[in-house]
Simulated assay, not measured.
Amino acid sequence: MPRITVNVDGSSYTDDVQPRTLLVQYLREQLGKVGTVVGCDTSNCGACTVHMDGHSVKSCSVLAVQADGHDVTTVEGLARDGQLHPMQEAFHDNHALQCGFCTPGMIMQALDLLADNPEPDDEQVREGLEGNLCRCTGYQNIVNAVQDAAQRMQPGAGPPMEQAQETSTRTHVAGGQ
């Protein structure tokens, strides 16, 4: 059984995994990162979107062994010291999370979008999120939230998010911890 080491939300994890284990399964079942949602299992909905080395990936289409040696950020890794990330705040304030099923993936994809284009117009937001589906059809509120977050995240718009994270190491061996 392969052994992987992955930095997830600032903590290093070393685990034995089955070669066929998907990253979404590893995050949820072995690490307890249940904010990463299992949606369609076909990479069509985007609910499982996380960042790997700073770029969004659909974790249902990535094997856990492919994440070996990489940095993964989940929606749980965005908040700092009990304070929501500006994107999370904007989704809350703009009622862009109706049932909440798509929210983690939308937030992670929206952050990737803003990293490439910090001031997108509505059409660019819609295009940037096109691989993520909302079951409640709350798209206009989601677009509004991304626009709001873009403003909140502009330099000088507020207190900067801390980039440094404390790290810890945990070793997990099949059959025990």
Rank of each mutant, 00 (worst) to 15 (best):
residue 64 A to I: 01
residue 16 D to Q: 10
residue 68 D to L: 04
residue 24 V to L: 06
residue 3 R to P: 04
residue 170 R to N: 08
residue 12 S to A: 10
residue 149 A to M: 03
residue 112 D to P: 01
residue 55 H to I: 11
residue 78 L to N: 01
residue 3 R to W: 07
residue 175 G to M: 00
residue 72 V to A: 04
residue 115 A to S: 13
residue 5 T to Q: 09
residue 154 Q to E: 12
residue 87 M to Y: 03
residue 148 D to M: 04
residue 4 I to K: 00
residue 116 D to E: 13
residue 60 C to S: 08
residue 104 P to C: 01
residue 109 Q to A: 12
residue 74 T to M: 05
residue 91 F to I: 04
residue 14 T to V: 00
residue 100 G to Q: 07
residue 33 K to E: 12
residue 126 R to G: 00
residue 40 C to S: 05
residue 169 T to E: 09
residue 39 G to I: 02
residue 94 N to Y: 09
residue 10 G to T: 02
residue 99 C to K: 02
residue 66 Q to N: 10
residue 58 K to N: 14
residue 20 R to T: 14
residue 81 D to L: 06
residue 20 R to K: 15
residue 82 G to C: 04
residue 158 G to Q: 05
residue 52 M to G: 04
residue 150 A to F: 03
residue 13 Y to K: 02
residue 165 Q to K: 12
residue 22 L to H: 13
residue 49 T to Y: 07
residue 130 E to H: 15
residue 67 A to F: 02
residue 84 L to Y: 14
residue 107 I to R: 02
residue 54 G to H: 05
residue 45 C to E: 07
residue 34 V to S: 13
residue 4 I to M: 01
residue 85 H to M: 07
residue 141 N to C: 06
residue 149 A to W: 04
residue 89 E to Y: 05
residue 37 V to M: 10
residue 166 E to F: 08
residue 9 D to A: 05
residue 14 T to M: 00
residue 162 E to K: 10
residue 165 Q to R: 15
residue 14 T to F: 03
residue 170 R to F: 11
residue 158 G to D: 14
residue 153 M to W: 11
residue 115 A to Y: 02
residue 167 T to H: 13
residue 149 A to L: 06
residue 101 F to M: 09
residue 43 S to E: 13
residue 8 V to K: 00
residue 153 M to L: 15
residue 19 P to Q: 11
residue 166 E to A: 15
residue 132 N to S: 12
residue 35 G to C: 05
residue 63 L to N: 07
residue 120 P to Y: 00
residue 25 Q to G: 12
residue 131 G to Y: 03
residue 52 M to I: 15
residue 116 D to G: 14
residue 100 G to K: 07
residue 56 S to F: 10
residue 38 V to D: 04
residue 89 E to W: 03
residue 30 Q to E: 14
residue 11 S to M: 09
residue 157 A to E: 13
residue 103 T to H: 00
residue 138 G to I: 14
residue 15 D to A: 10
residue 23 L to C: 09
residue 128 G to E: 04
residue 136 C to T: 08
residue 161 M to A: 11
residue 91 F to H: 00
residue 86 P to M: 02
residue 117 N to L: 12
residue 127 E to P: 07
residue 115 A to L: 10
residue 56 S to T: 14
residue 90 A to T: 10
residue 85 H to N: 09
residue 63 L to Y: 13
residue 64 A to G: 06
residue 172 H to N: 09
residue 78 L to Y: 02
residue 98 Q to A: 08
residue 20 R to S: 15
residue 168 S to G: 15
residue 127 E to D: 11
residue 112 D to H: 13
residue 25 Q to W: 12
residue 176 G to S: 14
